[in-house]
Computed example of a mutant assay.
Amino acid sequence: MQFTGDVLDGIASGEVDLAFRSWRTPSVRPGTVLRTAVGMVEIIEVTPVDPSTVTDREARRAGHPGREALLAAQRQGEGRRLHRVVLRFGGADPRAAMREDTALTAEELDGIVAALDRMDARSRRGPWTRATLGLVHDHPGTRAAELAARAGRDTLPFKADVRRLKEYGLTESLGVGYRLSPRGALVWQHIERIRER
């Protein structure tokens, strides 16, 4: 479930607390938490509705000027049904704070490296975490497709791997490409020190 930048700003400010989507099957359910550019968005309720019951007030609460604009923006097609989604801003993405956290002990750094080792051990294609971190370190702001080609990988699986590293606060997305976060840079330095031992 995606939102425009204006709607995300409205969710973050509390002005937008509804969304309407025409789905064959809802892509979210109550309890779903979405990561977005402005932070976390929590899904509270998902209910099928008759389009004729949607009000202008509800449309504005969903970031549209009125019900006609809201309904015109919905996907059409056989088997689709309009759903009303109640949502709320869930706060900042916890990864954002993690990316900036560089107050790590040697033991904590070893723990992160051990987690990377476990990811490598579970991989069917062999170790990949250090190679991916190294590419992002050496080529910040480079398109994912170019980084993937340098790694001899397809773009989508490569991007999925970078997202896995992002879960540990090690990488962050830029307008184009990625870079190591402050935390990621510290972990990379620790990895290089281990190699030198």
Score class of each variant (00 low, 15 high):
Val86Asp: 15
Val86Arg: 15
Leu87Asn: 02
Arg88Ala: 01
Phe89Lys: 06
Phe89Ala: 05
Gly90Ala: 11
Asp93Gly: 06
Pro94Val: 04
Arg95Ala: 14
Ala96Phe: 09
Ala97Ile: 01
Met98Thr: 05
Arg99Leu: 02
Glu100Trp: 00
Thr102Gly: 12
Thr102Tyr: 05
Ala103Arg: 13
Leu104Met: 12
Leu104His: 12
Thr105Asp: 10
Ala106Lys: 11
Ala106Tyr: 00
Ala106Cys: 02
Glu107Arg: 14
Glu107Ser: 13
Glu107Thr: 12
Glu107Phe: 05
Glu107Pro: 00
Glu108Arg: 14
Glu108Thr: 13
Glu108Val: 09
Leu109Phe: 00
Leu109Ile: 13
Asp110Val: 06
Gly111Met: 04
Ile112Phe: 09
Ile112Arg: 07
Ile112Met: 09
Val113Ser: 14
Ala114Asn: 05
Ala115Asp: 10
Ala115Gln: 11
Leu116His: 08
Leu116Ser: 04
Asp117Asn: 12
Asp117Gly: 12
Arg118Met: 01
Asp120Tyr: 03
Asp120Gln: 04
Asp120Ser: 05
Asp120Met: 02
Ala121Trp: 11
Ala121His: 14
Ala121Ser: 14
Ala121Ile: 01
Arg122Thr: 04
Ser123Cys: 08
Ser123Glu: 07
Ser123Gln: 08
Arg124Tyr: 08
Arg125Cys: 07
Gly126Val: 11
Pro127Gln: 12
Pro127Phe: 05
Pro127Tyr: 00
Pro127Asp: 11
Pro127Ile: 00
Trp128Tyr: 14
Trp128Glu: 10
Arg130Pro: 06
Arg130Thr: 15
Ala131His: 10
Thr132Ser: 07
Leu133Glu: 04
Leu133Lys: 10
Gly134Asn: 06
Gly134His: 05
Leu135Ala: 01
Val136Ala: 01
Val136Cys: 02
His137Gly: 03
Asp138Ala: 15
His139Arg: 14
Pro140Glu: 04
Pro140Asn: 05
